[in-house]
Design a protein around this nucleic acid. Structure first.
Lengths: 360, 360
DNA sequence: CCGGTTTAGTGAACCGGTTTATCGCGCAGT
DNA sequence: ACTGCGCGATAAACCGGTTCACTAAACCGG
């Protein structure tokens, strides 16, 4: 049994019943000081009686703002949510949008097109996560001409941006393994939104890869063709990728994973394979998500301030919305830092050496 | 340097430049068959030149639909995102909304009021997650008179609902521990959106608690005043709650956790305390989130189809939107099922008995 | 009693689209 | 020559609010 949804009362209905003009009804809600208190009260009580609520879309149209901001992702939402990174990031942006009274709209490709989704999105501005310069619709998106702050994307000058020193973080991770004595290291990259053109990695993952490579090459470690495998940025993805590499005959002593989710998948895979971490295999992640503290062993990883990245991006966007146009677009680069927990150690052979002491 | 954001071209501008009426411009986009092909082309090219995109809010207003649906949560978004359950659920709803061309708006309390947030939300319908009958604003929310499907909430008849047999799931979990021989079991409940009135637990957590209690009491296990502790539904929450219980002198042989996130926190706490799971402590979770497969040991838990719950809810909502009003409100109850992995075993004393064989 | 300022409230324009009813026109049929 | 029809396009109403400019009445001191 469904009560027949009655036509929604509009402002004119309230006005008529209360015997006032539309304007007065509007004032009763938005500028009560312009009305005699008892008039305002009467209008409000009529409104309540009729069950009137201002139509949010109409309000948006005339106020010329939506009071909602969008989070744009080039992947489909089900992919996005499968990566715990996103929830943590969203925690950050929602913390500030919520406090400032903004709603949050998720924007993902609509029938294959991100530009189309953006066109349909009723937002005052957008924080774009991982929107690569090479995205096929980049021109259309730029064209939308919305206030936008870019996160984890090669900055282009007219928009504010917040990113992280990925390359330095990657170097720290690689250096840590090299210092421990590892020479055979498997890199597990994560798939971007779209396959990046081979050889011209410019996104976050490209930068991390460059960091890894720089250190390994400096240490005289050659990177064979099977040095890097890619996986979706999920637990399952990491697990499958490592098992696949193992089946292909790879026997690394350490893994550099480009995300914690993937790293935890690798941890699980190594359990299947009866490899002890860190004795038989070292694993280092990237991101430092909360879940990394709760894995066994706790994950050595590159910390980046994911939640703060979200907050910062939201903050920059809201500032841009408040500012008169023409202001400079700030560009923040946050720091990364290696946090060593328990998933890394010297490689097996070195351990053996230590156990059977040799002449120094 | 910001190019001075020029006034956004509107339909009238395009009409004027193209030398046609507003209606024709509209038709060029929405009903091209009503125009001579070359006219439509010309209009579209003028539009492209001017960088015209139909204003989404205006479009919503006149089409009288927003093509977006809301996900409503009584907690703040930063809390919501901290619980991996939500991401998994959202994965489900976004999978179907996305496929059907709907956008997704997150609705959480606005300056303390969920009703206010709902009033400002431009959505065609809402899936409400964990909206309790006892919510202080329940009347106002009902009043919004929006198509709504309730998830994990005591159903009220005029709305579609999808839930899960929480009590049966809880019973299965408790029975599993009892069968293994546990007698001293700590229950870790999770905090709802608002503190539920003591003694009158009607929400999901209340039902789970009833399931646990029924089995334990049937097994002759008395529940002391310190039998249940509560925690936020996060890794950290579970960890802290167990450590606190331990400090208070509790020494259970098993833990019934009302969520996987909490259970994984307990796993971590037990590592700190040098308790081996499952030898010294058994842990069973609830939800069966992906992360549970990746913990060490993999988590014994009550499976509920979280992702499918999201899909189902979204599907019901979209059906309601398409249907003429007056249709019955379906009410789905999905099944739970215990999945035994490696975090549960007989309690320590029993293990000792087995190691030192006794007369059968 | 008068001119000027407040106060309370109104009418109409506006936000930017979609859609319905209508209209002018060229053409075929009688 | 007149009618009817279909095509292509349009004018105007509508969606449901906010706000600007204005007015009528009440209030004020001199």
């Amino acid at each position: 049994m469904q009560e027949p949804r009655p036509r929604r009362p509009r402002i004119a209905d309230v006005a008529q019943v209360a015997g006032v003009s539309k304007a007065s009804v509007s004032f009763a809600f938005n500028s009560p000081e312009r009305l005699k208190p008892e008039t305002a009260d009467r209008i409000r009580s009529v409104a309540a009686e009729l069950g009137y609520r201002p139509h949010p879309v109409a309000r948006m149209l005339s106020e010329r703002r939506t009071m909602t901001i969008g989070v744009l992702t080039p992947q489909s939402l089900s992919q996005v949510f499968a990566n715990p990174f996103f929830a943590y990031f969203a925690e950050g942006v929602s913390a500030v949008t919520e406090e400032r009274g903004y709603g949050l709209l998720l924007i993902s490709p609509l029938r294959g097109s991100l530009a189309r989704a953006l066109d349909r999105a009723t937002v005052d501005g957008v924080v774009a996560l991982g929107l690569d310069e090479t995205h096929p619709e980049i021109e259309a998106i730029r064209h939308a001409n919305l206030p936008m702050v870019l996160v984890d994307a090669p900055a282009w000058p007219e928009h504010a941006a917040v990113e992280v020193d990925d390359e330095a973080g990657a170097r720290a991770a690689a250096q840590h393994l090299v210092d421990l004595g590892h020479r055979d290291i498997l890199i597990v990259a994560v798939e971007g939104p779209v396959a990046e053109p081979e050889g011209q990695h410019d996104g976050v993952m490209g930068r991390r890869l460059r960091g890894y490579e720089a250190v390994l090459e400096a240490a005289g470690i050659a990177l064979g063709p099977d040095a890097v495998v890619v996986a979706p940025a999920t637990f399952e993805g990491g697990e499958a990728a490592f098992l696949r590499a193992w089946e292909d005959g790879r026997r690394p002593t350490a893994v550099l994973a480009m995300s914690d989710a993937v790293a935890i998948g690798v941890l699980q895979a190594s359990r299947h394979l009866r490899l002890r971490v860190p004795q038989d295999l070292s694993v280092v992640g990237f991101d430092d998500l909360p879940v990394g503290r709760f894995s066994d062993p706790p994950l050595t990883t590159v910390h980046q301030p994911v939640r703060r990245k979200g907050e910062e991006a939201a903050r920059l966007l809201l500032e841009e919305l408040a500012a008169k146009p023409g202001a400079a677009a700030p560009h923040r680069v946050l720091k990364t830092r290696l946090v060593v927990r328990r998933s890394t150690a010297a490689p097996p052979s070195v351990v053996v050496d230590e156990e059977a002491p040799l002449p120094q």
